[in-house]
Amino acid sequence: MGTPQPGAGAEADGAGHPQEGRHADWLELFFDLVFVALAAQLSHGLHGDPSLRDFAVFLGLYFPPWWLWINLMVSANLFADDRPRRRLLMLSAMLCIAVMACAVPGADTDRGSVYALGYAGTRLVLLGLWWPATRYPEPLRVPRWRPLSYCLASGLLWAASAAVPAPWQYVVWAVLIAAEMALLLSARGRGLPARLDTGHIVERVGLFVIIVLGESVIALVTSADHVWTPRAGAVGVLGFVLLAALWWSYFDFGSTSAELMLARADDRRAYLLARDVGGFLHFFVTAGVLCMAAGLATAVEEADHAHLPTGAVWVLAGGLALYHAAHAGIALRYGRSPAAVAVWAVPGIGVPLLVVWAAGHLAPWLVVFLLAAEAIAHLLYARKLQRHRIAAAATP
């Protein structure tokens, strides 16, 4: 997964010369490790019996680091080099994200200022990555107002928000994120100093999915360590089956479809697809998996009880419904017909919601079993559909 297809696009060096497609480098892999800690912090906030407020806080605190990861990933895609300057900038961003991760448990109370300052630091890193492109020869030169507004001004305003008292601080954050998104949407790919390496983008997003799936596995293992009973073990095994089915279907079908669609698109459409699918819709994909991680941990810990807490069922089953809904949005964005998408999306969303409705009468192991069964059925349907398509393509 992640090998660029012919025509997928290539990056350019500082002079704008095309380079061949590449894989994630060692610095990018090291950089992603800090998101392992961030994912753990965010998921932990949904353990037990989370309320609607807890879920809103989770989404609100997850989007800024996801957004900056996307920004830094695209920057690394466009400005691929291994010079000390880039290394220092990416390591500085890593430290800023670690600060944000430390602030997550209290970011909605007394650590919000630290969280804001960590995010502000990443905007300055982005400024350092993009500023050299303002000196490129035409037509590759980036207008100076873009990094000054998108990176510097945003970073300064985020730093200033550290002095704003709650709850107004969170309103300021939402406005600043919306402004960043508006600037990106208005650009629509214009002014890029190089062609996007779409194979690299698919690989990087897939690696982030691996991070959140890994957090789910860690949650299962650590929870089983706390509750060492046969029922907890059974729930843990069923939870692993659920995660394995999601991994199988995502990397056999989801990432492969993304790579093929991006490879067939021209530069402009490839940028828009990468922005919408990788930047926006995959936020909900990964958020759904992080919710499931918290729900699975609670299911193991509550395995010997009559049923799961309501909040735990919502993050577990609701997380799976959100995961399928996000993939339905991705399929529609690729141009698939609503009828074809509904065949798998309706049961993919409906079955988890039915489990939520009936959870008060279901043992924890049965909740996880039903969700795992749905994920396996989804995988089998995708494989059957793939075989039919291959057979139809082979028929003269």
Rank of each mutant, 00 (worst) to 15 (best):
A182C: 07
A393T: 06
M90P: 08
R123S: 13
G9N: 06
A39T: 15
L354P: 02
P139D: 09
A393V: 04
K384H: 14
H327T: 05
G9W: 00
L220I: 14
E374W: 02
T256E: 14
P105A: 00
A393C: 01
D110S: 12
A372C: 09
D108S: 15
V36Q: 07
D13F: 00
V315A: 06
C102H: 11
M90W: 06
T310E: 12
A224V: 09
A312V: 06
R268W: 06
L184S: 14
G189Q: 05
Y170K: 07
A178S: 14
G48Y: 01
S216M: 03
E259N: 15
G318P: 11
R268G: 02
W145Y: 07
A270V: 00
L29N: 02
G21I: 01
M73G: 12
M100C: 15
L72A: 14
L124F: 15
P165D: 08
S149R: 13
V237C: 08
A224F: 15
G319T: 05
H378D: 15
T134Q: 07
A265R: 01
L320T: 00
S51M: 02
H388L: 13
L242W: 08
F79E: 10
G9T: 00
S186Q: 12
A270K: 00
R269V: 12
R53Y: 02
R144I: 11
V104I: 15
A37Y: 13
M73D: 08
G236L: 11
R86T: 13
A224I: 04
P143Y: 04
A120E: 04
P167S: 09
L117H: 06
S75L: 14
A107Q: 00
Y150V: 10
S161T: 03
R22F: 10
D110F: 09
H17T: 14
L320I: 03
G189M: 03
V114T: 06
G48R: 01
V341E: 08
A153C: 10
G318T: 07
R188M: 01
H226K: 15
A328M: 04
